[in-house]
Simulated scan of single mutants.
Amino acid sequence: MKFAVVVFPGSNCDRDMLHAITDALQEEASFVWHTETDLSPYDGILLPGGFSHGDYLRSGAMGATAPIMQAVKQEAAKGKPVLGVCNGFQILLEAGLLPGAMLRNESLSFICRNIGIKVRRNNTMFTSKYEQGEEIILPIAHGEGNYFCDDQTYEALQRNNQILFTYSNNPNGSVQDIAGICNERGNVLGMMPHPERAVESLLGSTDGLTLFQSIVSNWRESHVLNT
């Protein structure tokens, strides 16, 4: 499976993401600059964390207007897996690929630590190798990770089973402890915790590797069925 790791000016988790795919997962990945307009050669798309364009205006707002995002939307429409982590999640929100918005953490402080995350659905291409209700450990590192949506949007997220991850102990004030959501189709995931920083026991957890293994497993199964 071949992944694109999209790089924006200000991305700082792109190398972590590439390492997770090429070294830990043993799959193929390449950096793709934000000015590119074609992602068709890739099987999966990864938007890493950082501070795209310095987070001017709002976190992810300028990144969402980059030329590459039209290609992201095109490939997402084809059903390809798209994962946005931290700033990547913020970009997906600003681009309209996922509903809701990000606010500053309730503490108004940057938070960087490992934290418990609950798997709310294990029947998606991102979570199939987890157990339903399993608690995993992933690191967070953000100042604007307080996910917000109105009541109507939250009801839609629940109704469509779009909430994939919640915090065990909410660190930032996110609505209903939300840590990660997907689109209705289930192929676009945005999450604030960093699975790419939890792929080796040396880092304190391998729970993030399971997410990437889920993507690859589901991609291979779908390609076997289509051949």
Rank of each mutant, 00 (worst) to 15 (best):
M1Q: 11
M1C: 14
V7W: 04
P9I: 12
G10L: 09
S11M: 12
N12Y: 15
C13W: 13
I21F: 15
A24F: 13
E27I: 15
V32Y: 08
E36G: 07
D38L: 11
Y42V: 10
G44E: 05
G49P: 04
G50Q: 07
S52I: 06
L57Y: 11
A64I: 14
P67A: 02
M69T: 03
V72K: 02
V72T: 07
Q74G: 00
G79C: 00
G79W: 10
K80N: 09
P81A: 05
L83C: 10
G84S: 09
V85K: 04
N87T: 14
Q90T: 04
L97N: 05
L97C: 15
P99I: 06
G100H: 07
M102L: 13
L103S: 08
R104A: 06
R104I: 07
N105T: 05
E106V: 12
I111A: 14
I117R: 06
R120F: 00
R121L: 13
N123Y: 00
F126L: 11
F126W: 11
T127Y: 00
S128W: 00
K129W: 01
Y130H: 01
E131W: 02
G133N: 01
E135I: 09
E135Y: 11
E135V: 09
I136M: 02
L138H: 06
I140M: 11
E144V: 02
Y147M: 07
F148T: 05
Q158K: 13
F165S: 04
Y167W: 06
Y167M: 08
N169G: 02
P171L: 06
G173M: 08
G173I: 09
G173L: 10
S174P: 00
S174W: 02
I178K: 03
G180K: 02
G180Q: 00
G180M: 05
C182R: 05
M191Y: 01
H194A: 05
E196Y: 03
A198F: 02
G204M: 06
T206D: 08
D207G: 07
D207E: 14
G208T: 03
L211W: 03
F212V: 05
S214G: 07
V216K: 05
S217Q: 13
S222H: 13
V224R: 14
T227Y: 06
